[in-house]
């Protein structure tokens, strides 16, 4: 499979304050996947993205995007990617419809096609009623949706989204995730997504890299990373208000590591013994519990183990 992004020994040091924003990043994004950069604020995610879209010149290393060298051939790269930045200050005076349509025209769409795609995007993003409003009249979330429209138009080969849903409510966020997934699956658009939301990462990403202090801590699919950290299964039991019968927690101990967290009993157990643990729950009866869940190690667990910083859970 061809690579959408290939970074080899990529580094960025800001000369002014001698801050090393990126250090020796080696990373590959395959064409057709949704790849995420996960990390806390100031970890170096946006620096990497700016290098990918040609806004920031790397200090060291090599960077190819869609097979083109970003440093020596930035125009060829720009023709193949659409970028949604965190701010659209330059077009604050334009109407939402104009921002999307003009972005399409500047990416080479005919007037008719740009108009048609703009209308579709306004409808799909649920912002048709705001189409004639200027960007500066909109709330942060609606601005973000307008930015999304401008990034989506023109069917890019690579879509780069920098914290795209940070200002959106839950319903709109899910709608956007669906749209990103649809573009990826129907149009084979590669997506590079920067986020500090574990939920977003869990929901959307095929593979991800965890970045902290400018360094790449780990990369792989969510499953691979979870396995790397802890391949045990997780049985979570949420007790009823009356509490659990005596001996229940002790008996669970024979199936693995048991601990209490956030008023839940957590059992970390192997695949072979999970069925026995569930059997024990059944034996004691479901009257004692409100709910129980079986899962693998969460991405948040992975991040905390590999990255060690603070992540959003929104």
């Amino acid at each position: 499979m061809h690579l959408a992004i290939e970074a080899v020994g990529l580094g960025k040091t800001y000369k002014k304050n001698n801050v090393r924003a990126n250090v020796e990043i080696n990373l590959q994004v395959q064409q057709g996947e949704i790849f995420g950069l996960l990390g806390p604020n100031g970890a170096g995610k946006t620096t990497f993205v700016k290098q990918v879209v040609g806004l920031l010149k790397p200090s060291t290393g090599k960077l190819k995007v869609m097979g083109e060298d970003v440093i020596t051939n930035p125009d060829a790269v720009r023709n193949q990617l659409n970028y949604m930045s965190q701010n659209i200050f330059a077009v604050w005076h334009l109407k939402v419809r104009e921002v999307i349509e003009n972005s399409g025209r500047l990416r080479g769409l005919s007037a008719g096609e740009a108009k048609k795609q703009t209308q579709n995007l306004l409808e799909e993003l649920g912002i048709e009623q705001h189409g004639e409003k200027a960007i500066f009249h909109l709330s942060g979330g609606l601005r973000q949706l307008a930015g999304f429209g401008a990034a989506f138009i023109g069917k890019p080969r690579l879509l780069v989204l920098d914290e795209p849903t940070s200002s959106l409510d839950v319903a709109r966020r899910r709608k956007l995730w669906d749209k990103v997934r649809e573009l990826n699956q129907k149009e084979n658009v590669t997506v590079l997504l920067v986020t500090h939301s574990v939920v977003e990462a869990e929901h959307l990403l095929d593979r991800l890299a965890i970045i902290q202090d400018g360094k790449l801590r780990a990369q792989g699919s969510p499953g691979e990373l979870k396995q790397k950290v802890d391949n045990r299964l997780r049985l979570e039991i949420i007790p009823h208000n009356g509490g659990l019968p005596s001996g229940f927690t002790r008996d669970l101990g024979q199936f693995g590591e048991v601990f209490e967290a956030n008023n839940r009993i957590v059992v970390l157990t192997s695949r072979g013994t999970l069925q026995n643990a569930v059997g024990l729950v059944e034996q004691y009866g479901f009257d004692y519990i409100d709910d129980f869940r079986i899962g693998t190690t969460s991405l948040e667990d992975v991040y905390l183990k590999l990255g060690g910083g603070i992540l959003g859970t929104a």
Binding site: R78, N87, I88, F89, A90, G108
Partner: peptide, 12 residues
């Protein structure tokens, strides 16, 4: 305000 970013990433 880093407004040039919008134009700089477009093929213009």
């Amino acid at each position: 305000a880093r407004g040039f970013d919008f134009y700089a990433t477009l093929p213009v």
